[in-house]
Simulated scan of single mutants.
Amino acid sequence: MASARTVLRDRVRANRAASAARREVARAARRVRTTARSLATHVIATGADRETVKGVVKALRTAAKNAGIKGRRARIRRTAQGFKKHAVTAYRYTRAQVAHIAAAYKPRKAEYKVVRAALIAA
Rank of each mutant, 00 (worst) to 15 (best):
1 M>R: 02
2 A>G: 00
3 S>Q: 03
3 S>P: 00
4 A>W: 11
5 R>G: 04
6 T>Y: 11
6 T>M: 13
6 T>P: 00
6 T>E: 15
7 V>K: 14
9 R>S: 09
11 R>L: 12
12 V>C: 05
13 R>T: 00
14 A>R: 09
15 N>F: 10
16 R>V: 10
16 R>H: 09
17 A>R: 11
19 S>G: 00
20 A>C: 00
21 A>V: 03
22 R>N: 11
22 R>T: 10
24 E>G: 13
24 E>T: 13
25 V>E: 07
25 V>P: 06
26 A>V: 07
27 R>Y: 07
28 A>C: 04
30 R>P: 01
30 R>G: 04
33 R>H: 09
38 S>H: 04
40 A>I: 10
40 A>R: 14
41 T>A: 14
43 V>C: 08
45 A>D: 04
46 T>P: 04
47 G>E: 02
50 R>K: 12
50 R>L: 11
50 R>W: 12
52 T>L: 08
53 V>D: 03
53 V>S: 02
55 G>W: 05
55 G>I: 03
55 G>Y: 04
56 V>R: 03
56 V>S: 06
56 V>I: 08
56 V>H: 07
57 V>N: 06
58 K>A: 14
58 K>T: 12
58 K>C: 05
60 L>A: 06
60 L>G: 02
63 A>N: 00
63 A>R: 03
63 A>Y: 04
64 A>Y: 01
65 K>T: 10
65 K>D: 14
65 K>M: 08
66 N>C: 00
67 A>L: 11
72 R>G: 04
74 A>N: 01
74 A>W: 06
75 R>M: 14
75 R>V: 15
75 R>A: 13
75 R>S: 12
76 I>H: 14
77 R>C: 06
78 R>K: 13
79 T>I: 08
80 A>N: 11
80 A>T: 15
80 A>D: 14
81 Q>T: 10
83 F>G: 11
83 F>E: 15
84 K>C: 04
84 K>G: 06
86 H>T: 11
86 H>K: 12
86 H>C: 01
87 A>F: 08
87 A>S: 12
90 A>H: 06
90 A>V: 12
91 Y>A: 08
92 R>S: 02
94 T>V: 02
95 R>K: 08
97 Q>Y: 01
98 V>N: 05
99 A>T: 03
100 H>M: 13
102 A>D: 02
103 A>D: 09
104 A>S: 15
104 A>E: 10
104 A>N: 13
106 K>A: 14
107 P>Y: 06
108 R>Y: 08
108 R>V: 10
110 A>R: 13
112 Y>K: 07
113 K>Y: 05
115 V>C: 07
115 V>H: 02
115 V>T: 05
116 R>I: 04
116 R>F: 06
117 A>K: 13
118 A>Q: 04
118 A>R: 11
121 A>M: 06
121 A>G: 05
